[in-house]
Design a binder for these strands. Structure first.
Lengths: 341, 341
DNA sequence: CTCAGCTGTGCAAGCGCTTGCAATTTGCCA
DNA sequence: TGGCAAATTGCAAGCGCTTGCACAGCTGAG
């Protein structure tokens, strides 16, 4: 057993036990090959015996930088966000970086708190996969000199690169597909209609339908980004009297809620109503009926975000740019020819 | 615009601008009411104008402690883990704490890395909701003096409290329920059979069936803790020739994968085979058919973990104890009377 | 007026680690 | 064996913030 140590172990304790200076211990622990092998072994042994864990705050402070990336997401419960986070994390770990994630639950208040926290932690890079925006967010972020990536919001700047999905194209693919089957009464089921980036998707839907399928009737509804948000929105939609041949959901997660409601009501999908999602989360393939949706390559996005935040020679060309993702239509079981044409 | 500041802003910059000492700025920023109101206002204004964000590493270092909790989970993709994390986070935020989460993906290697990281960050408390265990994990954790909570693993100690669910009881409820309907060929579908805590659940299943429904045939199978893990496991189970009247899944998440496979095969649930889950995640209610399962109060657990890690007078009685959660049976659509009795 | 007793502030010593630079040791060759 | 460069190690100055303690000003009682 070790002697006294009311506070947690310091580098000094290891140094003393290995009979070297703290500088040497530090070098060993940081793998600065310059330490004699025998010394290194002694230090390692001492650290091991003391079960020593360096204080990472002190480390960051002394180094003036660290290898931690921050990621802000609106709703980790939605697998879409999780997948991006997970991909980013894998990429980061593969290159010796850590990532800390903050969930905003679509509250800009929380977003502001979280971004301040991350700046306070002096993260080496920051990714914001969020829809809610706030004056104070931009304020906080404005003259932080850390590399950043925003998904779906904001505009490129020196240290900010944007990745956005081409909703216009995705919508076009879905609407064209539905029109080719004869759908003419379509509802768009979104969420959080007050958030600008999401509003944009709604507008995109309306424009797209008008452009591609001018004769079609449309209707808009919304709920929270959750399974039951989808269910409730579907309930309200049908209660409103609109009788859609197809419901286009803003994402798969909510679509699953929609499916549930329709099933409860004895409405068959796709025979009575077709349903589409967006994102192509894993669940889309596992729900019943499996969802027709638009694929967004979350793995790729996560990896890409990392490459942008921590650029190597060949990836830094993206920095400060805007990157457009082109969603692919994935047809499964939830869509078909409308009953009464 | 602010003058030069190649490095990020320091307390000193704010102090200079407000024409006070750094000590005063610090006091203002920490709300140590002792600063004259007018001074405070001046400091706040300066900080605001400079868009200053305190370096949290320096803060933690100087304070010698911080208000961050760490949480380790095996698989954030499984909503069960997410829910606990989320509840813990909410409780934490409500009391001014932060939480950082680490995903181990069931790899003990990653678990060890993560726990070291958290110790390095000197978290104020640590929750481990993981199944994979490792000698080195205990080693790292052993003489850390931080409060800890383990879910389903380990044994109580001075600074370690345990919360575990009473699988025996949960299993009993499920098996009794199925037996009462006449099921006599039951399969247990688990995951990661090499992990001890999970192995235990399997054993519990076998014992329970033997005890409660001695005549029943049983079979064990397993896949990864994921939607497709459930699907694959179901595939293998049926391919093995065993013809179950009911499949008892280790959790809801995998059960959804099982449902998917059965549907693909044209096997009706519950008419041909009954399926049960465990956890009662939100998705259990939204899949098709809705899952019969055992409810585990994840909100309550998350809150409880916080209360234990950051005890107040009335909650500290739990510290160092073992807390047993009693799962409630929730009957939905995925179970019924077996076809051929 | 004087001086104890408050408030408000500033000083400066850390917190535990990294790292430039100097000091010491070692290795090698003449 | 002496001497020099290279290889190791130690010294000590920070990194940016907190906080115990000392030091003003001020107030009001004596």
């Amino acid at each position: 057993m070790v002697g006294k140590q009311s506070q947690s172990l310091k580098l000094e304790a290891v140094a003393k036990r290995a009979r070297v200076s703290t500088a040497t211990v530090s070098r060993v622990l940081n793998n600065l090959d310059m330490v004699k092998v025998s010394t290194k072994a002694r230090v390692l042994k001492a650290a091991e015996e003391l079960n020593y864990h360096p204080n990472l705050h002190a480390r960051s402070l002394a180094r003036g930088k660290n290898r931690t990336l921050g990621i802000l997401v609106s709703n980790m419960e939605n697998p879409f966000f999780f997948d991006i986070y997970h991909a980013l994390e894998s990429a980061a770990h593969a290159r010796g970086y850590e990532v800390v994630v903050a969930n905003t639950d679509y509250h800009s208040e929380q977003l502001v708190k979280s971004v301040r926290l991350m700046i306070g932690w002096r993260v080496a890079g920051l990714a914001a996969i969020v829809s809610e925006m706030d004056q104070r967010f931009w304020q906080a972020v404005s003259d932080a000199k850390i590399p950043m990536v925003f998904y779906d919001v904001g505009t490129p700047q020196k240290n900010i690169t944007n990745v956005r999905v081409d909703y216009r194209k995705g919508m076009r693919k879905i609407v064209e597909y539905l029109r080719s089957m004869g759908h003419n009464r379509m509802a768009f089921l979104g969420h959080h209609s007050t958030l600008e980036p999401i509003n944009e998707r709604r507008k995109t839907f309306l424009e797209t339908v008008k452009r591609i399928s001018p004769g079609a009737q449309v209707k808009i509804c919304a709920g929270s980004d959750a399974l039951d948000g989808g269910r409730e929105a579907a309930r309200e939609l049908l209660a409103s009297g609109f009788d859609p041949t197809a419901i286009l959901c803003v994402n798969d997660f909510m679509a699953v809620g929609v499916l549930r409601y329709l099933r409860d009501q004895g409405i068959r999908v796709p025979e009575d109503i077709s349903v589409t999602g967006f994102d192509n989360i894993r669940l889309a393939e596992f729900c019943s009926p499996a969802l027709t949706t638009a694929h967004i390559p979350r793995e790729k996005i996560g990896q890409m975000i990392f490459d942008i935040l921590v650029p190597e020679k060949n990836t830094e060309r993206f920095v400060g740019q805007e990157i457009l993702i082109d969603p692919e239509l994935v047809v499964r079981e939830s869509t078909g020819v409308p009953r009464s044409r």
